[in-house]
Amino acid sequence: MNVFRLTGDLSHLAAIIILLLKIWKSRSCAGISGKSQILFAIVFTTRYLDLLTSFISLYNTCMKVIYIGCAYATVYLIYAKFRATYDGNHDSFRVEFLVVPVGGLSVLINHDFSPLEILWTFSIYLESVAILPQLFMISKTGEAETITTHYLFCLGLYRALYLFNWIWRFYFEGFFDMIAIVAGVVQTVLYCDFFYLYVTKGWFSRPYRL
């Protein structure tokens, strides 16, 4: 464990909690892409099946359980409890265009052709594009609530910090995972446009406009 990975995980946890609390307290999921949240639930489910097979550490297990729990709770709030506030018209990204290529790629390029490893690879590839429906929805509505922008900032920051974690681990441990690194770079690059706006627009004053 290193400072980049720990702050990355905490940034990820913050993003997940910010979104869950926002929907719960405002009793509304307006401006939130349910499709992205379903993709994240799939990402965690396929990546954390090793909860059933191997124990790495209490931290590892706790975080995985929290991530999976919050992801499904968020999907439940969007599609069940506050379904009336779900903006389906603007959440129109064709996720099959993400899931199918990612599924194919995970079968072709992986570290080991075993079910668990292919699912892990699928999860890594899917996570790198899972935010696209949300970014697409914001571009369609032309704005995002301030809280939503903080959610996206923390979410984007987490994988950027992981890039530094991988540099650290390569330098100090000689460890590197090319699949995770390449997908992590793609994932972080997708946020660049958003990061630029978040930093330059001084968002705290008005809603995010493209």
């Binding site: 790495i56 570290h111 892990w120 995972d177 699949i179």
Partner: peptide
């Protein structure tokens, strides 16, 4: 790339 007990990162 894989540790013997799978992946140790979240």
């Amino acid at each position: 790339a894989m540790k013997d007990d799978g992946h140790d990162e979240l």
